[in-house]
């Protein structure tokens, strides 16, 4: 009897694995004309081999999925902010992408120095928080090391002025939701940011800080992703919880995103090129008051 139960469990595990693998294999970016294509990396700046491996995989993946820019979720430079650190932790690993004209839009993590905002390849233009638009997507890059009332007020103004037509994507270092054990969620920050995200219809949020990949089940209609394993990794640190839709903590990863109309296609890829998560988020028509809906 016990043997039969064990066999059933093994069979179930195998079926689940095969199904998720085939689902990943079925996934394909639509590569629609005029879509917004980007990659997402976080907690990168070690200058070590795993980071370089991820960067190489990004180059490789770009031949099939030509993303135009990259957003970084902070901790861009772990080793310091000497000129050699900028090279070792950023310019050298991503040289091929930079040479190909791929733009990086950085945010600051707790290991970053504020003056990284003056480093042109980070496209921060001297500001530690800023906004930019690509196609039908408005991005908000925040500095969660220092979420003072001034930045909160700025964010509210920017979200309000962005209106309801475009996708709204916020990204920053400290995750509002997390099932990783090392830091856990930044609930203090959540208290301040989540009401604004809900009020003004933010669609998706990307954060790092936890050195794992996690896709969180929608919270108040908003999709949260953690991609903090593009350089550093805390293997086995994820304790999947009720909020976890998918997690991966056994190797380094990066994400690729395509936003085509009201659909956002995403794939998290390991440094060996294995798709560890993928899917599509559909944005439904937004009410005029500013809230967003999803399916």
């Amino acid at each position: 009897m016990r043997r039969r139960s064990v066999l059933s469990l093994v069979l179930l595990a195998v079926v689940t694995l095969v199904l998720s693998a085939s689902r990943a294999a079925d996934f394909a970016f639509p590569l629609q004309a005029n879509s917004v294509r980007l990659a997402v990396i976080g907690d990168t700046g070690t200058g070590k081999q795993p980071q370089i491996d991820v960067a190489r995989q990004m180059v490789k993946s770009r031949t099939a999925f030509p993303f135009e820019f990259v957003i970084t979720l902070g901790d861009n430079l772990y080793t310091g902010s000497r000129p050699s650190d900028f090279d070792k932790d950023f310019a050298v690993p991503y040289k091929s992408l930079l040479d190909a004209g791929v733009q990086f839009y950085a945010t600051l993590g707790n290991h970053d120095k504020t003056n990284e905002r003056f480093y042109k390849p980070f496209n921060m233009n001297g500001a530690s928080y800023y906004t930019f638009k690509k196609g039908n997507v408005r991005f908000f890059a925040l500095d969660t090391n220092y979420m003072d009332p001034k930045q909160t007020a700025w964010l509210e103004t920017q979200l309000r002025e962005a209106g309801n037509g475009d996708w709204k994507i916020c990204y920053f270092h400290h995750p509002l939701y997390s099932s990783a054990m090392f830091h856990g969620p930044a609930t203090d920050l959540r208290k301040v940011l989540e009401p604004l995200f809900v009020k003004y219809g933010v669609d998706a949020v990307f954060a790092g800080h936890e050195h794992v990949y996690e896709r969180v089940r929608p919270q108040q209609g908003i999709y949260y992703f953690i991609e903090g394993a593009s350089g550093s990794l805390r293997a086995g640190n994820l304790a999947p919880s009720a909020i976890t839709a998918k997690g991966f903590d056994t190797d380094r990863t990066f994400m690729m995103i395509e936003i085509a109309g009201d659909d956002m296609y995403f794939q998290a890829t390991s440094r060996t090129g294995v798709a560890v998560d993928s899917g599509v988020i559909h944005r439904t028509v937004r009410p005029a008051s500013g809230g967003a809906g999803h399916e």
Binding site: G80, N110, N145, D148, P149, H173, H174, L189
Partner: peptide
């Protein structure tokens, strides 16, 4: 240069 910075809670700021 090599030390991280403490993220400051919004309530404290």
């Amino acid at each position: 240069d090599t030390e991280p910075i403490t993220a400051l809670p919004p309530e404290l700021l």
